Simulated assay, not measured.
Amino acid sequence: MKTYREFFHQFLLLYRPFEHHLNLELAKHGLYRSQWTILYYLSHLGTATLVELSTYQSVEKPTVTRTINRLEELGYVEHVPTKDKREKRMQLTELGNRISTEVRETVDQFEQNILAGISEQEQLEAIRVMETIRKNLIE
C-alpha cells in the first residue's frame, strides 16, 4: 500500500474513536465536542463572532448558531455589545469560564492518557504535519 494511502486510512481509523471517547469524557460535564470547541476557542481568544467560530470549526454558520444558542441556555456564553448590530460577538460568562476550566482538566487527562508512549518530540512533529495538511486543504 502506498504510504499516503496508509496515512489517511490510519487517520480515518483514529478520528471516529477519538471523537466518540472525547464525547464520553465531555458527557461528564453535559457537553459535546462542538460545544467544547467553542468554549475552548473563547477561553483562549476572549470574544468571537459567529462567522469566526464557523470558520474555526469549518462548519456552516447555522450550525454554530444552534450550538451558541444551547451554550447561552446553559449560561456559558453571552453577547458582547458591538457598534454593528448585525454582528453577533460572544464571550464566556463567569460560569462559562469555570466550566471551561473544569472541562479542560478532564480533557487534559484524557489526552495525556491516549498519548502515553509518544514523546513530546513526536507530538510536535505530528502537530507540524497536521498543520501542513490543514493548510494544504484550505488553500
Results as ranks from 00 to 15, higher is better:
Lys2Phe: 02
Lys2Glu: 15
Lys2Val: 06
Thr3Phe: 12
Phe7Asn: 09
Phe7Gln: 09
Phe8Ala: 12
His9Leu: 11
Leu14His: 14
Tyr15Trp: 12
Arg16Asn: 15
Phe18Val: 08
Glu19Leu: 15
Leu22Pro: 01
Asn23Thr: 12
Asn23His: 00
Leu24Asn: 10
Leu24Ser: 12
Ala27Tyr: 01
Lys28Trp: 03
Lys28Ala: 12
Lys28Asn: 05
His29Asp: 12
Gly30Trp: 03
Ser34Asn: 14
Ser34Gly: 05
Ile38Ser: 05
Leu39Pro: 03
Tyr40Trp: 06
Tyr41Trp: 09
Gly46Phe: 02
Thr47Lys: 07
Ala48Ile: 04
Ala48Leu: 12
Thr49Lys: 06
Thr49Val: 05
Val51Phe: 08
Glu52Lys: 03
Glu52Cys: 01
Ser54Cys: 04
Ser54Met: 12
Thr55Met: 09
Val59His: 05
Pro62Cys: 11
Pro62Arg: 08
Thr63Pro: 05
Val64Thr: 14
Val64Asn: 03
Thr65Gly: 04
Thr65Leu: 10
Ile68Val: 15
Ile68Ser: 08
Ile68Tyr: 00
Asn69Ser: 04
Asn69Ile: 03
Arg70Gln: 12
Arg70Phe: 02
Leu71Glu: 04
Leu74Arg: 12
Tyr76Phe: 14
Glu78Trp: 03
His79Ala: 05
His79Gln: 11
His79Tyr: 10
Val80Trp: 01
Val80Tyr: 09
Pro81Phe: 07
Pro81Cys: 05
Thr82Gly: 01
Lys85Glu: 07
Lys85Phe: 06
Arg86Gln: 09
Glu87Thr: 15
Met90Asn: 01
Met90Ala: 02
Gln91Ser: 10
Leu92Ser: 07
Glu94His: 08
Glu94Asn: 02
Asn97Met: 10
Arg98Val: 11
Ile99Thr: 15
Ser100Leu: 02
Thr101Lys: 13
Arg104Cys: 03
Val107Asn: 04
Val107Glu: 03
Val107Cys: 01
Asp108Met: 13
Asp108Asn: 14
Phe110Glu: 01
Glu111Cys: 15
Glu111Phe: 07
Gln112Pro: 00
Gln112Ala: 08
Asn113Met: 02
Asn113Trp: 01
Ala116Pro: 02
Gly117Met: 12
Gly117Arg: 10
Ile118Met: 07
Ile118Thr: 13
Ile118Asn: 07
Ser119Leu: 02
Glu120Lys: 15
Glu120Thr: 13
Gln121Phe: 10
Glu122Ala: 14
Glu122Ile: 03
Glu125Tyr: 11
Arg128Ile: 09
Arg128Thr: 12
Val129Tyr: 09
Val129Lys: 04
Met130Trp: 07
Thr132Glu: 05
Thr132Asn: 06
Ile133Phe: 05
Arg134Leu: 10
Asn136Arg: 10
Asn136Ile: 11
Leu137Gly: 03
Leu137Thr: 04
Ile138Lys: 13
Ile138His: 10
Glu139Cys: 09
